[in-house]
Every structure is written in structure tokens, then in C-alpha cells.
Nucleic acid binder design. Structure first.
Length: 857
RNA sequence: GGCGGCGUGGCGAAAUUGGCAGACGCGAGAGACUUAGGAUCUCUUGGCCACAAACCGUGGGGGUUCGAGUCCCUCCGCCGCCACCA
């Protein structure tokens, strides 16, 4: 009788799965497909338990689906470009490629030792030319369609990483990777026009019913749609300054503002411009603009982060100019304010101090006039007495022809009026900006364009792809593109005119790589196209996608964008790449997220050595729902190990009794009460585990249901003396003799269902036990057990009886007892009668045959 | 400030649509078997109480309902995202 020795059996089955190519798949129209994907890994070195939790979750789903007859695509790969590899090169002199490929080899070994059922023949690494070739291909397609473009722009610059960052990579004004405060730089940059899809991305988010609300909210916030209007204010001619009357004559200049509250425009008493506004720049350069220029420079020099987060004092100064409010026709002063952002809207704001708190404070500080133009029901605000702005709803007052209208109605009518008078129009403003993808680093995809003296920017023709990333040996960490230092790379000929040309030396943001890798997995070896549309047509979209919430915005929104780009290229008809998204919780140790720098990582290999991969998997799945964060405890892992040893002993001891041929199904036999109870538990457990796994993905409760079944089996065996338990470890359980055929039959059914259902969680042990039970051919082929609803249902149920909401009695009745009978039984029950003594029954409710509720007085 | 999520024993957690709160596990306690037990098996384990009954109990308060952890209002606390966004 062999003890449970995970180390030996796990190796045995991992070898067998590999040798039999157990998880490799091809398209099979006869079977329903299931694409199960976990976010691929950045090969940082070693995977810790926090990383592998995600792969375990996906593996349970993939293995369960396989047993349920699906053709399951479950691939894995490596997000292999990126800065850490380059930083390691600068630090240790190891080439990024060496560093990356070594890490991949190690981590792949880790995942294999955990027994994740990947189709490894589809493995991809984004740093290899046969992958990034297609980044370049898509780039060219986007260039053709105007979805990729180049412009000089003020970009986010991380002085520590020496590279540009996308807006999405700036967190609270600091670099997402290293935390250094981000500065601004003006550079020639490549962009992807994601804003073209802003509206669609936002609207389609309502259709993502398989996504967590939290992620959708984050994406909606990020896209940041706000409806409003642009309104143009004329600029008054100069010269009236100082006379106390700002001029009525207008120049050809206009100031366009963005507002969500055009209904308050009659109270727009001044204009605020961002210090970076072009008019401010120009006026500062004109005669007499010295002071303006000084203040503008001072505001621009203020710490950007502080300006963005509003920690800095609100300040402004008068430009001395005036603009004409196009609704009132009256001149209003134009100020520059340090809190107006050039990035948002038009970089100019119409200030309505009566109805916007910021404007109110500004007006108070500088003695500017306040006007009330919206009054709420039954209120009468006055500009003289109000202590704060009134930002809310109400009816318009002092607003010319619009006076008396409800504010929302006024908003619509005034937007129309602006349009008619050609002084503005309704518009939608997004927070989302185009995606800057240029990076001044080495370890990434070269951008496939050249610059020719004669022809200008020329794309590299598709048939010359890939533009290979040259191997370089020196990593200085200096702040310019490393590729620019390699003349053999830079100097090339123009594909158009054959004249001398220079290659683009920036590389692509690595988020480009991860924006479409899920399609490449469908056809990873294709050398003609990024993927065969037919293959993606079969496998796509991803049915189940799991990963960390840290990708809720960046990766997921970019992937949704790319999916639409491929759709509009005619490569797929999928709009949304991920049908179901599970955001897995983190693994904490000592109250903190596992990380190398905190020194609290748990290496799965250490745990596997001690308890085996199966126990580790079971523990991580059992301790909490997948979405929730978990606190690592060794004791919990040991508990799972104990449970597996308990299962092992049970099956091992019963194998001889129930493993033979010719055992009939319990359905064909006469069962006694105990046998019926076990059979009911078996079928009920199958029902619970099945629905817990699919579609609910409540992995933890599925495990507890299995534990209950095991407890029940032990109790049953103890009663029927199938097993003698309670001895020394090496004689813990010994098989007794079982006479009744029916007992053998129900035991066999229960144990085989147990082993099959536990196999997604603990595949190695399950395979071994399945073999021990006399079944060759592997447990996946055995399929998922099915249950009989009628058997799962108890034939007697306990019905609680409530009196005024408190349970006073329990009736044991046959299942299916009618409501009238239940009512009669309840009222006749002696316990109930006791509580009813001297009271009047007002009402009796029988709820779904499951509960009786009596109301008395 | 806006939006979203959450709050249940000593701990991790359960409780499909409102229907017996605390399944399952960890920890703790007791017993059995033992030279021994950190193995195994059995039992106990929300509070109050010697026990039972009764009563109390899902962050606080209120409401809807025969019945609320679950729905509504309100307050408190925690977490997340966005944010001088015009």
C-alpha cells in the first residue's frame, strides 16, 4: 500500500502529458470550442505564488472544460520585450536577449512542475522576429489607414527610464514603473489613433456582461466622455485698456471655450486661459507684454504634478484684454489662470462664478463680478450674500430669451442657438488621448519606417519585413535611442528612390505586443500573416480570460482597440476580444503583496518539494474565491495536503473492492437506506461542483463540496466496515470485506465521481488514482460525471416552521408534500401548538414548499 | 469632489431568485489509539448560560416584507479608479 507521494506521481504524469501531446489541439468543427487564456507573463526571472495563482485558476477551467467535451485552446507565452531586460543589461552586461531567454526557460519549468495544461507547441515570445514582424505589419496597415501618425508633441518623459511614457503610464504625475516624477519633452513621436474608437469603446462596454463592474468603471472613467459645447468669444480690440471700458470692437481673434454648462453663459463674467494657450504666448511677445510673459513663465514653471492634483494655490492675472460674451454681447475680462489645463478641452474656460466653485473663489479673490443665472425651486440666491457657488439644477434667470427655462432644457436650446448663430456647437470631449507608442529604448520592436532626404517619411514595404532588431553589445543607459548609435542599422536606402535614408531609431511601446497576442495563439506559426482569419474565426474570441487588475486600463483597453483595428482590416468579425474576464486577487504574505524587493515571495518550487503541486493548487483554489486577495499561510497549505492524503488513503484502500470489472450501476440495484443516502450525496455533489465551476467559477465552494463528499464517504465506510480506520499511519485504513453488491456499486460511483471532479484541481493525483481504479487511457477521456436530478433530490426534507419570524419547529416530510398538507402539518405540530396557545393566527404563508411562516397576534 | 466595490465567528470563508446565518477549512479544546504523537480517527467550537430553554447576533440607525446578510433610505468605516476635467 503506497503512501501518497506527490513528488513521484507528479513527475510521472507531467512526462506522460508531454510525451502524448495531451494538450495540443487543432480546429475541429465537430466540437464546441473553448478558448481559455491567462494573461501571458513578463519573464522577470522567477514566478512566485502570486503569479502562478492566475495560471492555476485558468487551468482548473481549461481542464474542466476539456472533460466536458470542449475543444480547449489553452496556450501560453511571454511578453518578452521591455525595460527590465535592458536595465539588467546596463547593470550586469548580460545581453537583454540572453537574460530574457534564460528567464523564460526557468519560468517555463516552474509552470510545468505545477502541471498547468498548456499547449506548449503554441508558445510565443514577443521578442522573437517571427512575432514582432507582425507588430510591424499591423503598424504599416495602421499607417495606411491614418490610424498611425507622427507628430511633434509635448510628451511625458521619465528621466530615470530615459524614455517617453503614454498617458496611461503616468500615475499621479510619476512613472508607473519606477515612480520618478515625470517631466515634459517635445519630441517627434508616433501615435495610434485610439481616440477614433473612443465612442465605440465606451458604448460597447455596456455589452461586456462577462466583465467585472469595477474594470468597466475604470475604463469608462479613463475614456472620460463629457458632453458639452464649444463656444467662441470674440476678442475685443486693444486700446480701451485703462479707459475703464474694454472695447466693443472685435479683432479677428477668437477664444474658443469648452463648457458642459452653456446654460450658465449669461453668468460667464470672465475668461480664463491656460498659461500655455497660444494667445497668451502671442500677447506675451507683443509690446508691453513683459509682465504677462513673466507670469506665464512662472505658472508654466510650477510643478506639473502639483498643478495637476490641485495642491497648488489658485492664481491668476489679468491680461488686460477683453472678450465678448456672444450671448450677452458684453465685454468680459480675459485672465490667465494656473489651474486651467491646456490638455483638456480648448485650454480656455468661460468662468461662471455664480455656479462653479472654482470660479467663485477666483472671483472673490480678485474682486470680479458674480452673477446668479440659475435659481433652484423656492430659492432666491443673490450674488451679494452667497458664500459658495450654486452648481446644481434649477431654472434660468436673467438669461435673456432663455429666462424661465429648466437648466437642462436651456442647455439643449442654447447649444442649438449657438449653432444657428455660428458662435459654437455641441461637442463631445474625451479624456482619452491618442496612444503615443515611440520609445527611445533598445529592447522593443523597431518601427518600420525610414526617412529619406528626398521623399520624406517612407514606410518599409511589407515584403521587406521584419526590420530586425540589431544585436548590440554596449548598453550605456544614456538618454537617447540606442539604435541611433548603430550606423549599420541607421543608414539604409530609401525604398522609393534608392537614395540614402535613415531608419527610425525608436522602438514600439511593449503594450503593442500584448494588444493582439491572443490572436497569434490561434495560429502561432503563420509566416504569411499575423494569423489566418479562419483560425481566429474558429477559436475567437477568448471565452475566459484571467489576470490581474493592474491591467484593467492599459492592456485591456489597448486590446479592445486592436481587436477593432483587425476587424476593420477585414481580418476578423470579432469586436470584443474577451467574453468573460476574471480579475484574480493578489496573494499577500505578511499583509503585503509578494515582491522580490519586500523579500516575502513564496517560490512554488519550495512548496512543491514539500507538499506537491496538487496540494499547492488545491490550497490556492480553496482558500478564497479567485477574485479575492488571499493571505498566504503555511498551515492552510498543510491542511490541503492532509485532505489529499485522506483522499489517497480512501481510494487506495477501496481500489481492490470497487476497481474490478462487471460492477453494475447502482441504478439497477435495490439500495438500502444508507446506500441511498450516499448515492444522493454523490449526485448532489456532482450537481453542486458542476454549477460551481461552470459558469460560476466558484472554485473554493466546489472544493468544499468535494470535501463534504469525502467526509460522507469516510462515515459511510466506517458504518459499513468497508474500511477500518483509526490506526497507525501505516495501517490507518484497511479494507474490510464487502458482501453487498449494492454497497460496492454506490461506493464505486461515489469514488469515481470524486476522482474525476477533483482532477481539474489536482490533476496528477487524480490521474494516478484513476489508473489505480483500473482505468487506462487517462482521466480526461473518462469525461465529466453527470448527475440525475431525481437522485440528487432528498426524498425527505426538513421544513422549518416560523412563528412571527422565528423558527419554532421543524417538520420532516416527504419531498413534494403539498402546500396545503404542509400548512396542516405545521398547525398540528405540538411545538407549534405550544407557541400558538392563546394567540390568534392571522396568516399562514407556505413558501415554495420549503418553509412555513405563521403570523400570530 | 465624482464614480465603483466592500463590511458576516479567534482566522480564511459559505449562504443561485429575499426563506433554517456561519457549509467547508484553519486555529483551539477534549477523547480514542499509543512507550510516544506535530500522524490518524471521533467529538466540541458565534455570544450569553453550569446545562437546557429563552434571548442576542451579518458595521450603526431606520424602512419595505409573513420573513432581510441579501432590497430601499441614511450614517460610519475600509479598498479601488478618476479628479482644479471647465
Amino acid at each position: 500500500m503506497p503512501d501518497y507521494k506527490p513528488q513521484t506521481i507528479e513527475k510521472k504524469w507531467q512526462d506522460r502529458w508531454r510525451d502524448s501531446r495531451a494538450f495540443e489541439v487543432t480546429e475541429d468543427p465537430a466540437k464546441p470550442k473553448f478558448y481559455c487564456l491567462e494573461m501571458f507573463a513578463y519573464p522577470s526571472g522567477h514566478a512566485h505564488v502570486g503569479h502562478v495563482r492566475n495560471y492555476m485558476i485558468g487551468d482548473v477551467v481549461a481542464r474542466m472544460k476539456r472533460m466536458r467535451g470542449y475543444n480547449v485552446l489553452h496556450p501560453f507565452g511571454w511578453d518578452a520585450f521591455g525595460l527590465p531586460a535592458e536595465n539588467a543589461a546596463i547593470k550586469n552586461g548580460t545581453h537583454p536577449e540572453t537574460w530574457t531567454l534564460e528567464n523564460i526557460a526557468h519560468m517555463k519549468g516552474q509552470l510545468q512542475r505545477i502541471g498547468i495544461s498548456y499547449a506548449w507547441e503554441r508558445e510565443i515570445a514577443t521578442c522573437l522576429p517571427d512575432y514582432y514582424h507582425w507588430n510591424q505589419w499591423v503598424f504599416l496597415k495602421m499607417l495606411e489607414r491614418g490610424l498611425a501618425y507622427r507628430r511633434r508633441s509635448n510628451v511625458n518623459w521619465c528621466p530615470s527610464c530615459n524614455t517617453v511614457l503614454a498617458n496611461e503610464q503616468v500615475i499621479d504625475g510619476a512613472c508607473w514603473r519606477c515612480g520618478t516624477t515625470v517631466t515634459k519633452r517635445e519630441l517627434e513621436q508616433w501615435f495610434f489613433r485610439i481616440t477614433q474608437y473612443a465612442d465605440e469603446l465606451l458604448e460597447a462596454s455596456d455589452s461586456l456582461t462577462g466583465w467585472p463592474e469595477k474594470v468597466l468603471t475604470m475604463q469608462r472613467n479613463w475614456i472620460g466622455r463629457s458632453e458639452g459645447a464649444r463656444v467662441r468669444f470674440g476678442v475685443a480690440r486693444e486700446g480701451a485698456q485703462g479707459s475703464g471700458l474694454r472695447g466693443q470692437e472685435t479683432t479677428s481673434d477668437t477664444i474658443e471655450v469648452f463648457t458642459t454648462r452653456i446654460d450658465t453663459i449669461y453668468g460667464a463674467n470672465f475668461i480664463l486661459l491656460a498659461p500655455e494657450h497660444p494667445l497668451v504666448e502671442r500677447w506675451g511677445g507683443e509690446a508691453g507684454g513683459d509682465e504677462l510673459r513673466r507670469n506665464m513663465q512662472r505658472f508654466k514653471g510650477q510643478d506639473r504634478t502639483a498643478r495637476m492634483t490641485g495642491e497648488i494655490e489658485k492664481e491668476g492675472f489679468d491680461t488686460g484684454r477683453a472678450a465678448i460674451n456672444p450671448f450677452t454681447g458684453k465685454p468680459v475680462p480675459v485672465w490667465v489662470a494656473n489651474f486651467v489645463l491646456i490638455e483638456y478641452g480648448t485650454g480656455a474656460v468661460m468662468a461662471v462664478p455664480g455656479h462653479d466653485q472654482r470660479d467663485f473663489e477666483f472671483a472673490k479673490k480678485y474682486g470680479l463680478p458674480i452673477t446668479v443665472v440659475v435659481q433652484s425651486e423656492g430659492e432666491s440666491l443673490s450674488a451679494e450674500t452667497m458664500t459658495e457657488a450654486h452648481p446644481g439644477a434649477g431654472q434660468l434667470v436673467d438669461s435673456g430669451e432663455f429666462t424661465g427655462l429648466d437648466w437642462e432644457e436651456a442647455n439643449r436650446r442654447m447649444t442649438d442657438a449657438a449653432k444657428e448663430r455660428d458662435i459654437g456647437e455641441g461637442t463631445v470631449q474625451y479624456r482619452l488621448k491618442d496612444w503615443g507608442i515611440s520609445r527611445q529604448r533598445y529592447w522593443g520592436t523597431p518601427i518600420p519606417v525610414v526617412y529619406c532626404e528626398k521623399c520624406g517619411m517612407v514606410p518599409v514595404p511589407s515584403d521587406s519585413l521584419p526590420v530586425l532588431l540589431p544585436r548590440i553589445s554596449e548598453f550605456s543607459g544614456r538618454g537617447d535611442s540606442p539604435l541611433a548609435q548603430i550606423p549599420e542599422f541607421v543608414n539604409t536606402t530609401c525604398p522609393k528612390c534608392d537614395g540614402p535614408a535613415r531608419r527610425e531609431t525608436d522602438t514600439m511601446d511593449t503594450f503593442v505586443d500584448s494588444s493582439w497576442y491572443f490572436f497569434r495563439f490561434c495560429d502561432p506559426k503563420n509566416s504569411e500573416l499575423p494569423f489566418d482569419p479562419e483560425k481566429v474565426g474558429y477559436w475567437g474570441p477568448v471565452d475566459f480570460y484571467s489576470g490581474g487588475v493592474e491591467h484593467a486600463i492599459l492592456h485591456l483597453i489597448y486590446s479592445r482597440f486592436f481587436c477593432r483595428v483587425f476587424r476593420d482590416l477585414g481580418m476578423t468579425n470579432i469586436s470584443e476580444p474577451f467574453t468573460r474576464l476574471l480579475k484574480q486577487g493578489m496573494v499577500l504574505n505578511a499583509g503585503q503583496v509578494m515582491s522580490k524587493s519586500k523579500g516575502n515571495v513564496v517560490d512554488p518550487d519550495d512548496m512543491i518539494q514539500k507538499y506537491g503541486a496538487d496540494a499547492l493548487r488545491l490550497y490556492v483554489m480553496f482558500v478564497a474565491p479567485p477574485e479575492k486577495e488571499i493571505e498566504w499561510t503555511d498551515a492552510g497549505l498543510e491542511g490541503s495536503w492532509r485532505f489529499l492524503a485522506r483522499v489517497w488513503r480512501l481510494v487506495d484502500q477501496l481500489a481492490e473492492t470497487i476497481g474490478g470489472e462487471g460492477i453494475p450501476s447502482p441504478a439497477e440495484l435495490e439500495l438500502n437506506e444508507g446506500e441511498r443516502a450516499l448515492r444522493r450525496k454523490t449526485h448532489d455533489t456532482i450537481r453542486r461542483v458542476t454549477t460551481d465551476l461552470d459558469p460560476r467559477v466558484h472554485l473554493n465552494t466546489a472544493v468544499s463540496a468535494l470535501m463534504e463528499l469525502v467526509n460522507e464517504l469516510y462515515a459511510f465506510c466506517g458504518r459499513t466496515e468497508c474500511l477500518r480506520v483509526g490506526q497507525h499511519a501505516d495501517e490507518v485504513a484497511t479494507a474490510g470485506s464487502v458482501e453487498r453488491a449494492a454497497t460496492v456499486a454506490v461506493l464505486k460511483e461515489a469514488v469515481e465521481a470524486l476522482v474525476r471532479m477533483i482532477s481539474p484541481f489536482t490533476p496528477h493525483m487524480a490521474e494516478e488514482l484513476w489508473e489505480m481504479l483500473g482505468h487506462p487511457g487517462g482521466i480526461v477521456a473518462a469525461g465529466w460525471p453527470s448527475f440525475d436530478e431525481a437522485v440528487a433530490k432528498a426524498d425527505e426534507i426538513v421544513v422549518p416552521v416560523q412563528i412571527n419570524g422565528k423558527v419554532r419547529a421543524r417538520l420532516t416530510v416527504p419531498a413534494g408534500t403539498s402546500e396545503e398538507q404542509l400548512r396542516a402539518f405545521a398547525l398540528a405540530d405540538p411545538q407549534v401548538a405550544k407557541h400558538l396557545e392563546g394567540k390568534t393566527v392571522r396568516k399562514v404563508v407556505v413558501a415554495g414548499g420549503r418553509l412555513v411562516s405563521i403570523v400570530v397576534e
